[in-house]
Structure formats: structure tokens, C-alpha cells
């Protein structure tokens, strides 16, 4: 773990305040993110854990302003490296993407262009941000492939994405993302589609690169095991809200929210055979019509009448471990 100086203003890379994202269409509006607050320090890795539809990817994409502006309503403030994401011009935003913030995805096959070689794609990204000749850019591409530990990088430089295995494609995509030394890397389930043996390789690599380059990383995943491997801070998301936030030890070893506890209990890992797993009953709420109180109340076994009417505030249980629950564990 990076040892950081006591929190000074300059240490904070990302600041998100009361972020709300709503997708509006003619028929309905979907509240994907419903008020999120967090700060991320330089060199820190935050894992956002949530299930499908929890708004974790939506939150991250809004940090890069990737949502179609016409159909999206974004409220609140987002600040990355001193830039107000809502306020900067489209031209500035293009400069920020890649150079300050960059992103890796779950499916490298859809993120890489099948018609260009890996080397050309990395060089292209480099040249968008730095005015250097093609040869220098290709040299940089080679360095980047070496950085992400692609075996025999000279040969892989000239390979097309479909010629690479899943793990190598993911490394190539990481190389593209790192090509301009971003200070913030957004990772959207980059290891979910990989085999376990390759997933662990990529996780180890990402952690090593993050330390070497001093990057901050926001890593979205549904897998608690991945979070345990890579996170400094963990944010648990449910129905567009952070229901629990804290250091990885606090959240995973001493969860305060019933949802986090339920997730831990339902994740299959060396449970006693023959005994039913502690599944969370029910399904996540409909984001078009959220219940007025705690969104998790309908599935929560500890819910009381108050939970269904009153939205629990974020309370600090000590040491920056925050939880949105009226009756925390």
C-alpha cells in the first residue's frame, strides 16, 4: 500500500460530490446514480463493488463524460486533477481523456479496433496527445508492451487483436490506456471475462503498474475476491448509492451494511457443503421507481418499518468507514 502524507488538498485527485445521473427518455427516467460522495487520493486504488444495475459503470463513465448529453441528466460536482468535469469544454475534455483519465473495459475485443495492429493503436493514442513522429510513437508502443509484460513484444506489436489470446488482448488494452501516463485509470470489470489463471496475472500486473506509475485507479467489479486483491478503499454500491465505504480491511472483514454482509455470505468460497448458501432473497429494485426509504430494505432481513420510509444518511462509524444504514451491524 502506498503510504500517503496526511490528507492535503493536493493529495486529492478525484472529488465527487452528490453525483446524480438520470437517463431520461420520452417514456421514463431511470435514476442510475442517486447521490454519491467520495474522494480519491493520488496513488490510491478504489474498488467499486456492485451487482448488475447498481450504477457502478454509469458512475465511472460519467467521470469521463461519456454519456450522451441529450439523454442524460447529471447533477452534482465531479473534479479530477483540479478540472471540473462538468465545466470543461469538449476540446479540453478530449485532452483529459487519455492523458489524465483513461479507461479499460471488460471486453478488449470491442475496445480495440480489429483493423489495426496493436502497435498502430498504441502509437495512434500516443500521437493524439503528444506531437511526436510515428517512429518515436512506435518505439513508445514497444516500451509500453514491455511495461505490461507482453512476451515477445516486437512480434506482438505487429499482431492484430484477433491474433492475441484473451489475456494478451487485455494487456494490450492496458498498454493503450497507459500510453499517455494517466493519473487516473478507470477499470470497468477488466478481468471478469478472463480465466482465473489469467485474471490473477492481470490483477498482479495492474497492482504492480499502479505502484510503479503512482496512478490512482477506480476499479469496478462484482467480485469481492478481486476487490480483496487490489483495493485500498472499497465502495459498495446498491441501487445507485454508496451503501458502504471504507478501507478494504474494514469493509470486507468488518462489514457494517447488511447488503455487504449478504454479498460476503452469498459469495461461494469454501462454505460448508450440504448447507444452503446465505443467499440474499429477491432482486434489486427497479431504478425507474425507487422505494422512498433505504433501497435495500425490501430484501433486508433486519429491515424495520422506519427503513422503508426514511432514507438513511451516510454515517461515519469511525476511521472513515461510512455506512448508509439506520441499523448498521
Amino acid at each position: 500500500m502506498n503510504v500517503m502524507a496526511p490528507a492535503a488538498a493536493a493529495d486529492t485527485l478525484v472529488r465527487v460530490q452528490d453525483l446524480k445521473v438520470t437517463f431520461v427518455s420520452r417514456e421514463e427516467s431511470v435514476s442510475a446514480v442517486n447521490g454519491i460522495n467520495f474522494e480519491l487520493k493520488r496513488g490510491e486504488v478504489m474498488c467499486v463493488i456492485g451487482e448488475s444495475g447498481s450504477g457502478k459503470s454509469v458512475m465511472m463513465r460519467s467521470l469521463m463524460r461519456l454519456h450522451p448529453p441529450k439523454r442524460t441528466r447529471i447533477e452534482g460536482a465531479m473534479e479530477v486533477d483540479g478540472y471540473d468535469i462538468q465545466g470543461v469544454s469538449e476540446k479540453q475534455m478530449r485532452q483529459l481523456r487519455g492523458a489524465t483519465v483513461s479507461m479499460i473495459f471488460q471486453e478488449p475485443m470491442t475496445a480495440l479496433d480489429p483493423l489495426y495492429t496493436v502497435g498502430e493503436q498504441i502509437a495512434e493514442t500516443v500521437r493524439i496527445h503528444e506531437n511526436i513522429p510515428q517512429e518515436a510513437a512506435m518505439k513508445r508502443a514497444l516500451e509500453l508492451l514491455e511495461l505490461v509484460r507482453v512476451p515477445s513484444p516486437e512480434r506482438r506489436l505487429k499482431a492484430y487483436p484477433h491474433e492475441l489470446s484473451g489475456g494478451l488482448r487485455q494487456r494490450a488494452m492496458i498498454a493503450v490506456a497507459l500510453s499517455c501516463n494517466p493519473s487516473l485509470l478507470l477499470a470497468d470489470e477488466p478481468t471478469t471475462a478472463l480465466d482465473a489463471s489469467v485474471q490473477i496475472q492481470v490483477l498482479v500486473l495492474l497492482r504492480r503498474l499502479q505502484k510503479e506509475l503512482g496512478m490512482s485507479v477506480i476499479f469496478v467489479t462484482h467480485d469481492l475476491g478481486v476487490a480483496a486483491q487490489i483495493a485500498d478503499k472499497v465502495a459498495v454500491m446498491y441501487a445507485g448509492r454508496l451503501v458502504e465505504y471504507g478501507s478494504v480491511q474494514d469493509v470486507l472483514l468488518n462489514p457494517k451494511h447488511h447488503y455487504t454482509k449478504g454479498m460476503l455470505a452469498s459469495t461461494v468460497a469454501e462454505q460448508e457443503k450440504g448447507r444452503p448458501l446465505g443467499a440474499i432473497p429477491g432482486t434489486p429494485p427497479d431504478l425507474r421507481a425507487l422505494p422512498p426509504g433505504c433501497s435495500f430494505a425490501p430484501r433486508c432481513r433486519a429491515a424495520k418499518a422506519q427503513c422503508r420510509t426514511e432514507l438513511p444518511p451516510e454515517t461515519d462509524t469511525g476511521g472513515g468507514h461510512r455506512v448508509r444504514c439506520l441499523f448498521p451491524l
Binding site: G262, A265, P276, A279, T283, P285, P298
Partner: peptide
Amino acid sequence: ATSDPISFDQDADL
């Protein structure tokens, strides 16, 4: 958490 699985998916449903 080990109650009957039959009642799952019902109460909290749309």
C-alpha cells in the same frame, strides 16, 4: 438466510 427458496424473487419483485 436459509429459509425456503420458493419465496425468493417474489416479494421484492417489480
